[in-house]
Computed example of a mutant assay.
Amino acid sequence: MAAMNNDWIDRVFGEDALQGLQRIPDGSVDLLLADPPYGLGKDYGNDSDKLDTAAYLRWTEEWIDAALPKLKPNGSLYIFLTWRFSPEIFVMLKQRMIMNNEIIWDRRVPSMGGGTRRFSSVHDTIGFFACAKDYYFDLDAIRIPYDAETKKARSRSIFVGAKWLELGYNPKDVWSVSRLHREHRERADHPTQKPLEIVERMIKASCPPGGIVLDPFMGSGTTAVAARRCGRRFVGFELNPEYCALIEQRLAQLDGQTPGERPLAERSA
């Protein structure tokens, strides 16, 4: 049973999420942000992405059932998926939550190469789910501002003072954000690192200031970095000790510290 104290907050534990989730009290997390292995055989320094289809889907259902109770009654979930498994996993989640959006992340992959027997895959699928109809969502925090030319064109009296014109428009469900290529300034040594722009949009929209974001598969630590940058708390798990060290390094750089000045990521006993 999880201890009812806060020593799990702002920590990344070097352990399997299925065991580590027991550390977290039920009903204590505002946002669950999950970027699990996609079931494509990627090398994360272990065998976590080398399950066959049936085993992968069983494992997915197992961690979902372990993680969802940690959410508050008005909490939300974003999950990164590949099109290969998103239909099955969306069905799992729709039996447990309310589905708000299927978001398409256009990775802006250049038009070159690719397969010759099918269309090139250049997107990831993201599911946005909520525990209840009154889920937290701050649209104003993520509005996209209109440019000066657009505002000028909407100068008729009926538009004067319109909130949507002044603050910007609601992001659509297709997000065109470049993947982190090898020369990208954000890029760390991780094969499937997600851009801060995407993760910060999720956090600003679906986690209140000072709230807690849970990431069961921390990877390079983008969720932790984004939470810190956005004034939120975080907790997560990561199997690979090299990635745990990378997370500590990224957060230390963000805070202007030397890695190791605080016990962020640790191997559980």
Results as ranks from 00 to 15, higher is better:
2 A>L: 09
8 W>S: 08
8 W>E: 13
10 D>F: 10
11 R>S: 10
12 V>D: 03
17 A>L: 10
19 Q>S: 11
21 L>P: 09
21 L>G: 05
21 L>M: 12
22 Q>A: 11
26 D>F: 02
27 G>R: 01
28 S>R: 05
29 V>K: 01
29 V>A: 02
30 D>K: 06
34 A>T: 08
38 Y>W: 15
40 L>V: 13
42 K>G: 09
48 S>I: 12
49 D>Y: 14
51 L>I: 00
54 A>V: 11
55 A>M: 06
58 R>I: 06
60 T>F: 14
62 E>A: 15
63 W>H: 07
64 I>R: 00
65 D>A: 14
66 A>W: 02
76 S>P: 12
76 S>A: 14
77 L>C: 13
84 R>L: 13
87 P>S: 05
88 E>T: 11
92 M>D: 08
96 R>N: 10
96 R>G: 09
98 I>S: 10
104 I>S: 13
104 I>K: 08
114 G>R: 15
114 G>F: 13
115 G>A: 14
115 G>I: 07
117 R>G: 02
121 S>Q: 15
126 I>K: 00
127 G>D: 12
128 F>I: 03
132 A>F: 01
137 F>I: 04
145 P>H: 02
147 D>M: 03
147 D>S: 00
147 D>E: 02
149 E>G: 05
149 E>F: 09
155 S>G: 02
157 S>I: 01
161 G>Q: 06
161 G>C: 08
162 A>Q: 15
162 A>M: 10
172 K>M: 09
174 V>Q: 10
176 S>Y: 10
182 R>I: 00
194 K>S: 08
197 E>V: 00
199 V>K: 03
206 S>H: 14
206 S>C: 13
207 C>E: 12
208 P>S: 09
211 G>N: 13
211 G>V: 11
217 F>T: 03
227 A>N: 02
227 A>H: 01
232 R>Q: 04
237 F>T: 06
240 N>V: 04
240 N>Y: 06
241 P>W: 09
243 Y>W: 09
244 C>D: 04
245 A>R: 12
245 A>N: 03
246 L>M: 15
248 E>C: 01
250 R>Q: 15
253 Q>V: 01
255 D>R: 14
256 G>Y: 12
258 T>G: 00
260 G>N: 05
260 G>C: 09
262 R>F: 13
268 S>C: 07
